[in-house]
Nucleic acid binder design. Structure first.
Length: 680
RNA sequence: GGGCCCGUAGCUCAGCGGUGAGAGCAGGGGACUCAUAAUCCCUUGGUCGGUGGUUCGAAUCCUCCCGGGCCUACCA
């Protein structure tokens, strides 16, 4: 097998938030792949960095009263700690706010300029003077100029479907401060990526650079029509690198972020006396990017276009994974399933998550689900019950004698498992860890059957059978070690413990091909403890309490996030008389049923006490089951003008909060309230 | 509206043109006691979402339909 030279990256985590178990899918997927390549004897380096630029960092720093450099330095430290806690080993972990990155941005920019791909265009944007920043379309809300619907984003109206620019909104408000933004025109620099259309159409479909579903996605969404110019500059003030030949303009964060892969490589090269061009301008080096489906197009269209234009190597493969769900649902802060890496580490062993993710990951873009009950049984039965147990049930019988000098006849078991090595390696190579784990567990099953039938605990009682006992345990421990080698990319800690027990380090995949004989056996120590449900519960409980307020760490007891208010700023002043026009009443839901043809609606019958009933269609289907609603008290707008809907007449509204989707929270009165009472 | 992915045992998934459809976990029965109540043996359980087609033969390929998820809706 010839030695490959491989450069691997994971997407750069953004410096405005902590690492959580969703991020870890990617970093663990990548780390396992890298460890696998290294174990196979390839030259492989894994680089990453914090992504530090952009408006969000600027705003975040402002809110905390610190400068951007302080914010990103703090967050970088937290990120590095989290990664190392999970055994994720980078060869270099840099920052996009580094001199190396600036230099590379300038180099690539110069090449794009030289290729004549840059054009300048005027862009009119809203500017938040209080926050000191330009606002993206989605960072502005206001009233739709077509239909008058309130609270619409700056790009289109989801009531009437009209599209417009943020400056067209009536009464626009900044999402950050709620202030009225001013209109400013600035000139932006664009890259005419369409000029590379043909190249991209070819590249995305060839040589297995992309998973087939990703290539299809690009072909159907972007490449079927001319590519739009890419706006790569932002006017000051902006936290980032100023564009040398365009003073007052900064590179958009998505321009310099992927270049961070290169900058991180350069730092590594400088530390190791390596040539940068051997990694980024060489046919001999494979480049593998791992990233989530949300940032597909930056990495499969813009990034190859930038590399191509600047004369660097193109990615060998872009590996795109799906999102993490927990218990089949999106991670939720309120349900405690939005678990930070640091919180996880306070309660559980990182090996558990490494193995669990490995057992679920496949080469497709599918989302993967973390089912907490399955998590517990999988760890306990696979890792503790099957794998570690093999060592646990044989090692102590040979503590004194060590392994046999000659490997005994095991009926072909070791050879069979050695032969599996290639299939397991292929599965790792293709990121089909699920398949690899299944094959490895099958070896563990066969090994346990062997020990069971050989009955070392019986042999132990007969001094004449000492040699046979040693032979049995030599087989058992060798099968165990073989599994530890195959699992080493996933469970590096187990590999170390195995090395310690048997006195021989596991540094090469080929250790799985030859049995170990004649070495001493150390005293067996537990290698992994069982997971208890209460540990998992405690983690969820703790996550529920953890305020994830981005980078903001507050000492205030109720450190509620400012995000909801920022997303939806306060409305204008309303007079008391105006308020009284709205007749809010306590109501009891006496009937609730699904509206089969509606995506969002449930049909409710509200009782205001006595015989008074209201028929209401409420857009809460995603958050509530009809049966759980019947009987509960809610707050309703009882005098709302009836509205004729496709499904019938709606005679009021019930009051709820939340951003929408599944996150809808109905209001309930305290005990004692009665239907029909007015709220004011 | 468009696109992509998925729908196989209670759960998580494998099989993706060819002997009677599989694994792990869960459930039931038994064995063992070396081991972290681990392990081993036996066992229950499935009209492979539905329909139509291609084929000597389909869970596996194609049509349509139903259901779930994600991404989009002129926006990167």
């Amino acid at each position: 097998m010839s030695q490959r030279q491989i450069l691997v990256t994971s997407a750069l985590p953004y410096a405005n938030g902590h690492i959580h178990i969703g991020h870890l899918v990617e970093y663990l997927q990548t780390d396992i792949w890298v460890r696998f390549q290294k174990l196979r004897g390839h030259r492989c380096i894994y680089v990453c960095a914090d992504d530090t630029h952009g408006t969000a960092i600027m705003i975040g720093a402002g809110q905390q009263g610190i400068d951007e450099e302080t914010l990103i330095a703090r967050m970088q430290k937290d990120h590095v700690d989290d990664f190392s806690g999970f055994g994720i080993e980078f060869d270099n972990y840099g920052s996009t706010n580094s001199p190396e990155n600036r230099a590379l941005c300038e180099e690539i920019w110069a090449a794009i300029r030289k290729a004549g791909l840059v054009v300048e265009k005027e862009v009119t944007q809203l500017f938040d003077a209080e926050a000191g920043t330009f606002l993206a379309d989605r960072q502005v809300k206001g009233t739709c100029p077509k239909c008058g619907a309130t609270d619409q984003y700056g790009d289109n109206c989801d009531k009437c479907g009209a599209t417009y620019g943020p400056a067209d909104l009536i009464d626009p408000r900044s999402a950050f401060t709620g202030t009225t933004p001013e209109v400013r025109t600035a000139s932006h620099l664009f890259i005419e990526i369409e000029r590379l259309h043909e190249f991209l159409a070819e590249w995305t479909c060839s040589d297995d650079h992309l998973q087939s579903e990703v290539a299809n996605y690009l072909a159907g969404h972007f490449l079927h029509e001319p590519l739009r110019d890419w706006d790569v500059s932002r006017p000051a003030p902006y936290f980032g690198f100023e564009i040398p030949d365009s003073p007052g303009n900064y590179w958009y964060v998505w321009f310099d972020a992927p270049i961070g892969y290169m900058a991180s490589t350069r730092q590594w090269c400088d530390r190791h006396g390596e040539q940068f061009d051997d990694w980024w301008r060489s046919d001999q080096t494979e480049i593998h990017h791992f990233l989530g489906k949300d940032i597909t197009y930056f990495h499969t269209l813009f990034w190859p276009a930038m590399l191509k234009t600047a004369g660097f190597s193109l990615p060998t493969k872009v590996h795109i994974h799906g999102f993490l769900t927990v218990g089949g649902e999106k991670m939720s802060k309120s349900k405690g399933t939005f678990v930070r890496a640091a919180t996880y580490l306070e309660h559980l062993d990182p090996s558990y998550l490494r193995y669990y993710y490995a057992s679920k990951l496949n080469p497709r873009v599918d989302d993967i689900d973390l089912n907490l009950d399955e998590f517990i049984t999988k760890i306990n039965s696979d890792l503790v019950g099957k794998v570690v147990n093999l060592a646990s049930r044989t090692a102590k019988f040979v503590e004194k004698t060590g392994l046999a000098i000659k490997y005994p006849d095991d009926g072909g078991l070791f050879q069979q498992a050695a032969d599996e090595g290639q299939a397991i390696a292929d599965a790792y190579e293709q990121c089909d860890y699920n398949r690899a784990m299944r094959r490895i567990m099958a070896i563990a099953d066969r090994a346990n059957q062997f020990v069971e039938h050989a009955q070392p605990w019986v042999l132990r009682k007969d001094p004449d059978k000492a040699q046979e006992l040693q032979g049995i345990c030599t087989i058992g421990l060798n099968l165990f070690r073989q599994i530890a080698v195959y699992l080493a990319p996933v469970l590096p800690r187990l590999a170390e413990q195995t090395s310690e027990l048997l006195g021989k380090p596991i540094v090469d995949w080929d250790e799985s091909q030859t049995p170990l004989v004649g070495t001493p056996v150390g005293k067996f120590k537990h290698m992994m403890t069982r997971v208890e449900k209460k540990q998992v519960d405690a983690m969820i409980e703790a996550s529920m309490k953890t305020e994830d307020n981005g980078a903001a760490e507050s000492a205030v007891p109720y450190s509620d996030s400012g995000q909801p208010l920022a997303d939806d700023p306060l409305a204008e002043i309303c007079s008391f008389d105006d308020f009284l026009k709205v007749d809010l009443r306590i109501a009891r839901i006496v009937e609730a049923k699904d509206v089969p043809k509606a995506d969002k609606l449930l049909q409710l019958t509200l009782s205001l006490g006595g015989d008074r009933r209201l028929n209401v269609f409420a857009g809460i289907k995603a958050g509530y089951q009809p049966e759980e609603l019947v009987g509960r008290l809610v707050l309703c707008v009882a005098n709302l003008a009836p509205r004729k809907m496709k499904f019938g007449l709606s005679e009021g509204m019930i009051v709820a909060s939340g951003p929408g989707g599944k996150e809808i929270f109905l209001l309930s009165p305290d005990d004692g309230a009665q239907p029909g009472q007015r709220a004011h």
